[in-house]
Amino acid sequence: MNRSLLLPLLCLLLAACSHGAADDEGEAAAVQGQVAVTTATPVQQTFHDTVEAWGVAVGDPQHARAISLAHGGQVVALQVAAGQSVRHGQPLLTITPDPAARNAYRQAQSALELASGELKRTEQLAAQRLATQSQLASARKALADAQAALEAQRALGGGSAQETVSAPADGVVGTLSVGLGERFAANAPLLGFTPAHALVAQLGVQPEDGARLHIGMPVQLRSVYGNQAAFVGSLRMIGQSVDPQTHLLGAQVELPAEAGAALVAGAALEAQIRTADVTAWAVPRGAVLHDERGDYLFQLEHGHAKRVDVTLRSPAGDPVGVQGPLDAQAKVIVLGVYELADGDAVRESTR
């Protein structure tokens, strides 16, 4: 080939290579400083708004009772322990009445025998016209009063050497207030008793959630331990003061009858109180971040990340529900969001 033609051809080749290298450098410069992200389109959706709560199953204070006796005595036998399930009529404890009650019963017996004898003598005298009708009426009244006094002492336990206290219904012994051999006074509580199927859930909720709750809301409850099925109760009471120990607002849930077969008093519970449904933006869970200013996410606008502060309204599941000034036309950044700051340049990844 003619050398005069070879030289211009080499120059053209070198110029083409230099132009290609410049294009590669320009593309690299355009990508440099950008964060590769993936995005999702936010959509409006109706969420079931809930309030989380925790607590325990306890005896319903409207049905629980303290068993006591109208007379004093001494415990000579204990047939149950605290927390034990019992059947109707099952012996709980055995007591011997107070000596004073036994003495009062014997005195009432003597008074009845005396009044009975006096009535017979008065009737004989009246038959002989040696006693008036007024005296006869008084003797009959004295006998009736003596019979009533004896029945009262029998009801007070003085009529038997020992007395057995039995379960008034199927249920659970809550607490034992007396021990074996212990003496107790009249009307002193002996034990606490909760009838079967008379449990409620005593819950604690965050104080700021109290304004969202009202009586009658459905509550889904589940035992913290085990794989027991969930059941639905009804919100019965909302406290108006914060517990100084837990710093939570008290709430009480009425449990269905079938819960008594699955729960025992003291069982730990987790609950979801369903409040009013709410319309919010549905976004992937990974798109929502949190810092000292609260919850937020990033939207992609003109190649840059824009921070949008939001309120997390439905945190369960994926997607989650958020409320805030989102642009319906701008996509929400999902992957790569942890590397971003407000205003950073971003590009959508094709992978």
Rank of each mutant, 00 (worst) to 15 (best):
V242R: 08
A111S: 15
L12Q: 11
E301A: 12
L340M: 14
S223P: 02
P195F: 04
E151P: 00
Q62G: 09
G286P: 07
V283C: 02
K331A: 14
N2Q: 10
F298Y: 15
Y338F: 12
A198M: 09
S314I: 05
P61H: 08
D209L: 06
A262T: 13
P97H: 03
S160Q: 14
A40H: 10
G179Y: 03
F231T: 09
A230K: 09
V165S: 00
V86Y: 01
F47V: 01
E123Q: 15
R183N: 12
L269T: 05
A230H: 10
L300E: 12
A104Y: 00
V205Q: 04
A257F: 15
C17R: 14
T175V: 06
L312W: 08
L150G: 00
V308S: 02
P61C: 05
A282K: 01
T41M: 11
A211D: 13
D309F: 07
T132H: 00
R313Y: 15
T132L: 02
S110Y: 12
A305G: 05
T122G: 00
H71M: 06
L221K: 01
H63N: 03
A196I: 00
S166N: 11
G181V: 07
E208Q: 15
S314L: 02
G83E: 01
H304G: 09
L269V: 06
F298R: 02
G192N: 01
V219M: 04
A316S: 08
L263D: 04
P325C: 14
D209V: 03
N187R: 13
A230V: 11
L150Y: 00
Y296W: 13
R274K: 12
A257W: 05
A201G: 12
S68T: 03
A251E: 03
V56I: 08
R87Q: 09
L10K: 03
R129Q: 15
G59D: 06
R102E: 04
F298M: 09
M237I: 06
A198W: 00
Q133H: 14
Q44M: 11
G294W: 11
S110K: 03
V242K: 10
L114Q: 14
A100S: 14
A196S: 12
G117H: 14
V322S: 06
A22W: 07
A280K: 01
D49M: 13
T94E: 11
A111H: 07
E163F: 10
R293M: 07
L12E: 10
Q44I: 08
Q220V: 05
E25C: 09
R347S: 11
G210T: 12
A276E: 12
T50E: 04
G179K: 04
H63W: 07
A268S: 14
Q79N: 13
G89I: 10
L248K: 12
